[in-house]
Design a protein around this nucleic acid. Structure first.
Length: 270
DNA sequence: ATGGTAGTTTCACTA
């Protein structure tokens, strides 16, 4: 049996946040780190800093200034085609194979403020992106492949994934069209939400706290936007470790010049 | 009902 630990973190600019990633990597030593919102082109990724952290194998899907995803690994990785999945061709999806596991890294569109696709093109894009994910999973479901889906999905699916279910029902990230859509996507692919399989409701779980709060810790108005899912072939490996199989690194939100998201981590026993 | 902060594409946009 071998262990494989996979972290996911929306860093909100990898060039600015590379020192924080280094601190996290030194403390937690994940085998793989999936990043979102790197906000740079491929060639601007701070690859040398990641090599120094012990992650020489890197796959970047960047774009100028906005969005962008990257995967950094201690183990060799094989890039896989990204299927041009994003309906607007933004850098929001990539996939690789590491130690026999396919890792898919997503940055789902945030969707703007108004949860109505008829008047808000960014919300329409978010729903189109979910449709594209569902169609992709439907095409691949019969394979039975060992797949990890991770990233900033920008949706808090369950009641206890937000600080106030009632007050967020009309707020983008927790509206029924989004939460039901994400459930459909997950079920289409036969994926297990590792966090909730190991840490069931009603325990509150958050991975994001707004920059705009006066005191993020005191108010604790968080949302669980960052996810790690395991395909049916990996469900046993994902749940074998019990509660230690999943972690949220809330302390990172209190570091100097933090991201508004914190890292999440799954520990697989393959 | 409003505004609050952060980052990059910056006297404007996304999140």
């Amino acid at each position: 049996m071998t262990a494989l630990s996979i972290a996911s973190w929306n860093v909100n600019s990898v060039r600015l946040r590379a020192p924080l990633v280094a601190k996290f990597a030194a403390e937690t030593r994940p085998d793989v780190i999936c990043l979102q919102e790197i906000k740079c082109r491929d060639g601007e990724f701070p690859a040398a800093a990641f090599r120094d952290m012990g992650y020489p194998h890197i796959h970047v899907r960047g774009q100028k200034g906005l969005h962008g995803v990257a995967i950094a690994s201690r183990l060799p990785l094989d890039p896989l085609p990204d299927e041009a999945l994003c309906p607007r061709a933004e850098a929001r999806f990539q996939r690789v194979k590491i130690a026999g596991v396919e890792i898919q890294n997503y940055y789902v569109p945030a969707g703007g403020d108004e949860p109505d696709p008829a008047i808000n093109p960014r919300f329409a894009h978010k729903l189109e992106f979910l449709d594209a994910m569902q169609a992709y999973f439907a095409r691949r479901a019969a394979e039975g492949a060992a797949i990890i889906v991770t990233g900033d999905l920008n949706i808090a699916p369950y009641e206890h994934d937000v600080w106030s279910h009632k007050q967020l029902l009309k707020v983008v990230s927790h509206t029924p069209i989004e939460t039901e859509g994400l459930e459909r996507v997950r079920e289409t692919g036969g994926f297990t939400d590792i966090a909730r399989a190991l840490i069931p409701e009603p325990e509150k779980l958050y991975t994001w706290w707004s920059y705009r709060a006066r005191d993020w810790r005191a108010g604790n108005r968080g949302r669980r936007l960052d996810h790690i899912w395991a395909s049916a072939a990996l469900r046993g490996a994902a749940l074998a470790g019990g509660r230690d199989g999943f972690a949220i690194f809330e302390d990172c939100r209190g570091w100097d010049r933090p991201s508004d998201h914190v890292p999440v981590l799954a520990r697989l026993k393959l």
